[in-house]
Design a protein around this nucleic acid. Structure first.
Lengths: 219, 219
DNA sequence: CGCTGTATTGACCTCCTTCAAATGCGGTGG
DNA sequence: CCACCGCATTTGAAGGAGGTCAATACAGCG
């Protein structure tokens, strides 16, 4: 268990750690950096998410993970993970299930990046975060703390920070969102979902891995 | 076991089938269609790949799968999958491993779509397919059959078919590839990899699920 | 109160899209 | 063997979404 500041690497591409990390508080992200210095963020990790289960199976990280905000992190030894997964099929199943949901999110992000204009990209991302954060009790009906930079939003959606800025203004002007003091408020959730063409099916909310179970693994 | 023509759906978003499909021959793809009719392809499925293992775990498809070329498909009952995974931890592990590799591919695609220009997008995709097809014996040192349409390539990379066409010509002019008669030949593999900034780490080739094992499941 | 990092704005540019037409080509029926 | 059809590829011209560069404003903080 440890505290980490914002914008610090939790694990880097190529690493072969012998433990697995679990986010208890704060936001983190998976990312890769290209030779020319461009960065692409490929996932947001929120409390309850396991960072690098891959390592226990694949042996080596094929991407890096960094905090976006200050975080509280739990460490679980890989041996413990292996024991849990081999001795408790239900946990193995739950973790696999979790992996499949992550895959679903990645696919939806691909749709977003490939086929949605910038304003809907942002809107869609906000819808997803609202729903995901609600399931772990970190969002109200229509708002949540969101200390992510416009630069980081750009790296997430494949946009420049300048363009993110302009599009955010559009969304504000259209009365879709309020983003102020590191808090995002959705003015009318249904309207934003409609605008973003957001269908939560891909999150498979009905059977999410209970954060309690995940946290239980830490002990 | 059945034969399917090109451009036919194998399974659709929302379906809850009670079997799982395995590609024995041909190419297929995962895709979603937006309300405005735009399509995004999110994965290529090649022989040895399991289409919709998700269903056995998540219960419902959150995307569709269609053939790109004529295919030979094997069906495996979900009951058989569940029995295999519960009774044979090694198979469970192998399938999970497979899922994680698919996730790695999705992340790399996200990088491609977000941060690479069109010419490198195509080059990177070709590198990936070359390597993946080599591992299942369907590509020579530098070429493979590739009956995918420019329109479909566009839907894969988030580009218009017109632009795909022009960029393909650039790649041909640059002597990087030859794409003719539904066969893709890479003129100089190392040069293309360099151009595309292709690093196969994300494919985790060292431990791929042996196609033989996958096919064994069909019986 | 100055420093540092983020947000904002403006001007210009370009990669990629859209629309529309033309070309090529494998199959099919006569 | 040829005419014709449907589909994919190719080409051209014009437009737009988003990028780059650079300056400015702003906010938190030591």
């Amino acid at each position: 268990m440890r505290h980490v500041g914002a914008r610090e690497d939790l694990i880097r591409e190529g690493d072969r750690p012998d433990d697995v990390q679990l986010i208890l508080e704060g936001f983190a992200c998976r990312y890769k950096v290209l030779p020319d210095g461009q960065r692409q963020i490929m996932a947001y990790l929120i409390p309850g998410d396991i960072c690098d289960l891959h390592v226990a199976i694949l042996g080596q990280m094929d991407h890096s993970i960094a905090t976006l905000t200050p975080c509280k992190i739990a460490h679980i030894s890989q041996a413990a993970v292996l024991e849990l997964t081999t001795k408790h099929p239900s946990i193995h199943h739950a973790l696999w299930w979790n992996t499949l949901v992550d895959e679903g999110i990645l696919r939806e992000w691909l749709v977003t990046m490939g086929r949605r204009p910038a304003d809907k990209q942002l809107a869609h991302l906000f819808c997803e975060l609202l729903v995901r954060l609600q399931t772990v009790g970190l969002a109200s009906q229509n708002s949540f703390d969101f200390g992510v930079t416009q630069e980081e939003l750009g790296d997430t959606l494949g946009l420049s920070s300048v363009h993110v800025n302009r599009v955010l203004q559009q969304l504000r002007d259209g009365d879709l969102i309020v983003l102020k003091d590191k808090r995002l408020t959705v003015v009318d959730v249904e309207r934003l979902k409609l605008f973003a063409d957001f269908d939560p099916l891909y999150l498979h909310l009905t059977r999410r891995l209970p954060p309690a179970l995940a946290q239980g693994m830490a002990s």
